[in-house]
């Protein structure tokens, strides 16, 4: 419970900051939601990933257009996309991580826009923002490894990988 509250506090501030910056430079700003989904999709088990996805959906429902059900659906689509792709690519390669980042950011933006913006992303993101999102993903994953202190081999030994 405390973990959920802490995650909600962290995520609502991160999304709030992203939103504030998007008002000025939406076209070049990376998509934080895509980055979170890729990290939890590649590095966590489904159970642990959901503990991030649900608070993220609450934070997005509070700050962005769309209700909780829509946001949950959108995040689950992104998460399942990451999980499906990680089975067919070598996601430890930074090139693949970049491609995955671009793909997830583009899919989320397209779905968000199609459902709520008559085709245009309500946050005004475009191709440059997708590329920037892809560019930061390898760095985000490295940061995650440093913070958790686990290498990919250790994660595999713990049964997280390839589950």
């Amino acid at each position: 419970m405390i973990g959920v509250v802490v995650r909600l506090i962290v995520l609502v501030h991160v999304i709030g900051f992203e939103l504030r910056m998007s008002g000025r430079m939406a076209a070049v700003l990376p998509d934080v939601t895509s980055a979170v989904l890729i990290v939890v999709g590649l590095r966590l088990t489904a159970g642990r990933a959901l503990r991030w996805i649900v608070p993220l959906a609450v934070a997005r429902a509070f700050l962005l257009p769309g209700g909780f059900l829509f946001q949950l659906w959108l995040l689950l689509v992104g998460f399942l996309l990451v999980r499906a792709v990680r089975r067919v690519i070598n996601h430890e390669l930074w090139q693949m991580q970049v491609v995955l980042g671009i793909a997830v950011a583009a899919v989320l933006s397209l779905l968000f826009g199609a459902a709520l913006g008559d085709g245009a992303d309500p946050l005004g993101r475009g191709p440059i923002a997708f590329l920037v999102t892809g560019a930061i993903i390898p760095g985000v994953l490295v940061c995650h490894s440093i913070l958790t202190g686990k290498t990919s081999r250790q994660r595999a030994d713990l049964g997280v990988e390839g589950a």
Binding site: I9, A61, F62, L63, P65, G67, F70, W73, A115
Partner: peptide, 24 residues
């Protein structure tokens, strides 16, 4: 629901959003 009524809310959703508001 996501496609036909993306703004639809759950009955207790306001409480979750309140938590987010207080956190923010």
């Amino acid at each position: 629901v996501a496609w036909l009524a993306p703004e639809a809310t759950l009955p207790g959703e306001a409480y979750a959003e309140l938590a987010a508001a207080v956190a923010w």
